[in-house]
């Protein structure tokens, strides 16, 4: 049983590391800043969460489990907030969008940063 749990911890750690690597590859390879933000926020959170889950399984005792759960919860709460802030900053700086972008629904509306910031 202990061996089985250790095997599960190892698989979770490798899976988390693979997702971290996918996030990094996405940040390097994707065409524009907004798509890069998408890769880093989703895959990075999942990878880090899986690794923290393996930490919670590895140590005996409720205190480590509670701390690891708090860390995962904190990560899940803060990543959307920071991704939203980063997205706003990227759009406000007027960074060029990928040429395959179909529609820019924000452009020219009330909430367009270019209009809002100019006032």
């Amino acid at each position: 049983m202990a061996d089985l749990i250790q095997a599960l911890i190892g698989i979770l750690a490798v899976g988390g590391a693979v997702f971290c690597l996918i996030a990094a590859i996405g940040v390097v390879r994707l065409p524009d800043a907004l798509t890069r933000m998408h890769a880093s926020s989703k895959a990075g959170t999942l990878g880090c969460g899986l690794i923290l889950l393996s930490v919670a399984l590895f140590f005996p005792g409720i205190d480590v489990v509670a701390r690891a759960a708090a860390a995962i919860l904190f990560l899940l709460l803060t990543t959307p907030v920071s991704a939203h802030m980063i997205g706003r900053a990227i759009y406000a700086t007027g960074a060029p969008l990928w040429k395959g972008t179909g529609v820019d629904e924000l452009k020219g509306t009330q909430d367009d940063p270019a209009r809002r910031l100019g006032q």
Binding site: C20, A23, A24, V27, A33, L34, R36, M37, S40, S41, G44, T45, G47, C48, L75, T79, S82, I86, A89, I90, T93, A95, P96
Partner: peptide, 15 residues
């Protein structure tokens, strides 16, 4: 762009 740097630094912290 500066936005790319923010994204990368954010991911660096998570990693």
């Amino acid at each position: 762009t500066e936005g790319d740097r923010i994204v990368a630094i954010d991911l660096f912290g998570v990693l």
